[in-house]
Simulated scan of single mutants.
Amino acid sequence: MSFTTHFFADDLPNSFFEIPVAIHAGQPALPVENPSAVLDLFRAEAVRNDIIVLTHPAGLRVAGIFPHEGSDAYFGFWETIDDVALNRDAFARLASEARRRGYGRLLGPLNFNTFHAYRLRLGPAPSWNVFDREPRNPAHYPALLAQLGFSPALTFESRLIRADAVPEAYGQKADLLAAFQQLPYDLIPLNPDTWGPHEAELHALVDNVFSANPAYRRIPLAQFRRQYNAGFAAGLCPHTSVLFRDRPTGQLVAFSFCQPNYAPLGLGTTPPNFARDYPRLAHKVLLAKTVGVHPDFRQQQLMSFLGAYGMMSFRELYTEIIFCLMRSDNFSRHFTNGLPMEVAHYALFGQELA
C-alpha cells in the first residue's frame, strides 16, 4: 500500500483520526483529539494556507501547511510508527512540494500556529509525566527527524521547582515582594467574570506580546475566542492569574495565565474548572503557563512582578510549581535561575530546503 494524498478542501479522511490511536495505544498519556474541533481548525486555516494531508495505513499521518504569506512551510499533526523509510518518503514529498512553491525552510511539528500544539519533547518523560498542552510525543520522534536531516530550530524548557526549594525562592525574592506592594498598576484577577469584558483587548495584547516571536502567526479574534474564552478562564487559577493595567492610559500591559496541574484527574476532553477540580487534587502543583509584557512596557521588571503576584498566594494553595514551555532564550527563564529544579527540554525542528 502507498500514501494517500488528500488536498484539504472541507473534510478529512477517517484514517486521519484512526492512525494516532493505534500509535499511542498503551502509552500513559494518550493525546485526545476532538475531530469536530480539529476539522473546524482546518477549515478556518484553509483561508490562509494550502493544506496537503498524507496518510499511510502502516502508521503515518502528516499535514503539509503552505502559508499564502511567508517563506517557511510547516508540517503538523504528525503521528508515526518508528520507521525511517516510511517517514523519509513522506517528508521527501512535503519538501519537494515546498520547494516547488518557493519556500526556503520546512518547520515543525506545528499545527498551523503557536496557539495550537507544536514542538516535541526531548528525552524521557519528566517526573510529572505530562501537563496540559505539553508535547507528549513518543520517544522516537526526535530521533526520526534527526535521521531525516532536521535539527532544532527553536528550543524550550519547563522547570519544576519542588516543595523543598520554595523557601529558598521566597528568600531570593524578598526585595521583589516588598517592591510589589508599591506597584503603580491596577491588578485585575482573571476569572470567567473578568475575562469577557477584556477579551478583545486581551487578544490585541497577546498579539503585541508575541508578534515578534519566531513561528508566531496572528489569529483572528473569532478563532482566538474558540480556544480562549470564559470557559478557558474557568480553568485558570483565579488567585495567581492576572492582568496589569496602566493607570494613566487604561491600557492592558501584562498578563499571566496560571492553572493547577489537572492531569492527575484524567479529564480528557472535559474542560477543567478551578472551582470544581482544584479541591479534587491530592497533590496541588501550579502551572505557570503563559506570561507576557507589552513591548512598550518592558525593562520595568513587570515580568518579575507577574511572578511576585503569583507568589502572594502560592504557599496557601500549592506545594510545587512548573514554569511551562519557556523559550530557551526568553527573559522569563531568569526568574528561577539559581534555584534547584528539574528541567524538561523541547524543540521545534527545521530543515533548509535550498
Rank of each mutant, 00 (worst) to 15 (best):
K289M: 11
S313H: 09
M303R: 00
L302N: 07
L306R: 00
S313C: 01
Q300M: 10
A308H: 11
G307D: 08
F305T: 03
M312T: 10
L306I: 08
P295N: 13
L286W: 05
D296W: 03
V293R: 10
F297N: 03
K289D: 06
T290M: 12
L306G: 12
T319C: 06
T290I: 10
S304M: 08
K289V: 05
Q299M: 14
T319E: 12
A288H: 04
A288W: 04
I321D: 06
D296K: 07
T290S: 13
Q300D: 02
A288V: 07
T319D: 10
Y309D: 07
L317I: 01
R315C: 02
Q300C: 03
V293E: 13
I321L: 14
F305S: 00
P295W: 06
V291L: 15
M311Q: 07
A308C: 04
V291T: 08
V291Y: 01
T290N: 15
K289Y: 15
G292P: 08
E320Q: 13
F297I: 03
M312W: 13
Y309M: 07
V291S: 13
A308Y: 15
M303Q: 03
M303A: 09
S313R: 05
T319H: 11
I321C: 11
S313G: 08
F314D: 05
Q301D: 09
R315P: 00
V293L: 11
V293P: 00
L287A: 07
L302K: 09
Q301M: 10
E320C: 02
S313P: 02
Q301A: 15
F305I: 04
L286P: 04
L306D: 02
I321H: 12
M312C: 12
F314N: 00
G307M: 09
R298I: 05
F305C: 11
V291F: 07
K289R: 06
F305V: 04
R298P: 03
Y318E: 01
L302T: 02
K289F: 14
Q301R: 12
P295T: 08
L286N: 14
G307Y: 05
A308E: 06
L287C: 05
Q301E: 09
F297V: 01
F305E: 02
Q300P: 04
L302M: 10
F305W: 04
L287W: 05
Y318L: 06
F297K: 08
F297W: 13
F314R: 10
P295F: 07
M312G: 10
G292Y: 15
D296T: 06
Q299L: 13
Y309W: 13
Q300F: 06
S304G: 00
E320K: 15
V293G: 05
G292C: 12
H294C: 08
T290D: 15
E316V: 00
Y309L: 11
I321S: 11
Q300E: 10
L287Y: 00
G310S: 10
L317M: 07
E320R: 09
G292T: 05
T319A: 09
G310F: 10
F314M: 12
